[in-house]
Computed example of a mutant assay.
Amino acid sequence: MTTRHPKGPLIDAEPARRHVRNLMSAGVSIVRIAENAPVGFAIVSGLIYTRGPSRGQAQKIRLENARRILAVRAENVVTGYVNPAGTHRRLQALMANGWPQLRLGPHIGLHPAYVNAVLKQTSIYGTTAASVAAAYDRLWNQDPRQHGVTVGTYKKVRGVARAHGWAPPGAWDDDTIDDPNAHPEWTGHCGTDRGWWTHKRQQLPMCPRCETAHQKWLADHAHLDSQTLNRARFRARAEASQREVDLAADGRELLSYGVPVDQAAERLGVTRNHLQQAMLRHPAPANEVTAA
Rank of each mutant, 00 (worst) to 15 (best):
Ser123Gln: 07
Thr153Gln: 13
Thr176His: 13
His111Met: 07
Pro168Gly: 04
Trp166Leu: 01
Thr128Cys: 15
Leu119Cys: 10
Asn141Glu: 10
Thr176Cys: 05
Leu104Ala: 06
Thr127Leu: 13
Val118Asn: 09
Gln92Pro: 14
Ala85Phe: 06
Pro100Ala: 05
Ala85His: 03
Gln121Pro: 04
Gly165Asp: 08
Ala85Gly: 01
Ile177Pro: 12
Val151Ser: 15
Leu104Arg: 01
Tyr154Lys: 10
Ala134Asp: 14
Trp140Ala: 14
Ser123Val: 00
Gly152Glu: 14
Ala133Gly: 03
Thr150Phe: 00
Pro106Arg: 11
Trp166Glu: 07
Trp140Arg: 15
Asn83Tyr: 11
Leu104Asn: 00
Trp140Phe: 09
Gly148Arg: 07
Thr128His: 08
Asp137Cys: 05
Gly159Arg: 03
Leu110His: 08
Ala134Trp: 11
Ala130Pro: 13
Trp99Ser: 05
Trp99Met: 07
Pro169Phe: 09
Leu102Cys: 11
Tyr154Asp: 14
Trp99His: 01
Ala171Ile: 02
Ser123Glu: 14
Gln142Phe: 00
Ala117Val: 13
Met95Asp: 07
Gln121Thr: 04
Ala93Trp: 12
Leu110Cys: 02
Val149Ile: 09
Ile124Arg: 12
Asp174Met: 12
Gly86Cys: 13
Ala161Gly: 04
Thr127Cys: 10
Gln92Tyr: 06
Val157Arg: 04
His147Pro: 05
Arg138Gly: 02
Trp99Gln: 11
Leu102Tyr: 08
His164Pro: 07
Arg103Ala: 15
Ala96Asp: 09
Gly126Lys: 15
Arg145Pro: 03
Pro169Asn: 04
Asn141Lys: 12
Leu94Gln: 01
Asp137Arg: 06
Pro84Leu: 04
Val160Leu: 15
Ile124Cys: 08
Gln101Phe: 01
Pro84Glu: 04
Thr150His: 03
Val115Ile: 13
Val132Asp: 14
Asn83Cys: 15
Ala133Thr: 06
Tyr125Val: 05
Thr87Ala: 06
Ala171Met: 02
Pro84Ile: 06
Asn83Ala: 12
Ala117Gly: 08
Leu104Thr: 09
Val118Met: 14
Asn83Phe: 02
Pro144Asn: 00
Asp137Asn: 10
Gln142His: 04
Tyr114Ala: 12
Ala133Met: 01
Ala133Lys: 02
Tyr136Met: 09
Pro169Met: 07
Leu110Phe: 00
Gly148Phe: 00
His111Ala: 09
Asp178Pro: 12
Asn141Thr: 11
